[in-house]
Amino acid sequence: MRSAIAGQVISQVVREWRTIARAPIDVANPLMFFFLGISLFAIGTGGEREGLAEIGPAVIWVLVLLANLLSLDTLFKRDHADGTLEQLLLLAQPVFVPVLGKVIVHWCFTGVMMTLLTPLSALVMNLTLDQTWILMLTLILGTPSLSLIGAIGAALTVGLRSGGVLLALVVLPLYLPVLIFGVSAAYLAGDGLAVTAQLYWLGAIAVLALTLAPFAVTQALAISVEQT
């Protein structure tokens, strides 16, 4: 039974992956926004190198949050528009299976991608090599929580006209702990201090989100589908 569910999740991941690979612009847009936003900060502050290094980790993390938020808008939208979502909810398999598959793929195309882009943004923001490593580590640990928590908000707002801004209002306050631990780890690393506690916290939040969020997303999807 257990392996059957794992198999279902994997086939869901493969399906999502193919869907996105066939329309890659949907995932490329948030990434371009991410890099554009960071550059805007660098340009807007006059490009002064010490100042950039000071705000760097915070700017990168905030842009990760925002790019993530923008990409969440499309997480369930297409499936909701063409009725696939309804069919997914009607399947005999537990609903968290497709949800988990979707979130995993979303994370691969946002969180992982932005982590991989971090050396580039760290260069723009004049961060040290140590800081860059720690930043990447916190991003890879923190972004799963962002995708999971964000999916709750995306599921709640999927059928609504005022989707975008509302999604930000609902989700951003819930992102706060991840932001704090991620940013503080990067700053501590900049001062040469230990960051294990922050990494443990980020890992713990990710595990908690992975445990609880799929069920909240399932509930939220049922509510959203019911109202249309």
Partner: peptide, 14 residues
């Protein structure tokens, strides 16, 4: 902000 989010969500769903 959490209160704002709840308020906005309630307003947005017909």
């Amino acid at each position: 902000f959490l209160y704002f989010g709840l308020y906005a969500l309630r307003q947005a769903i017909p």
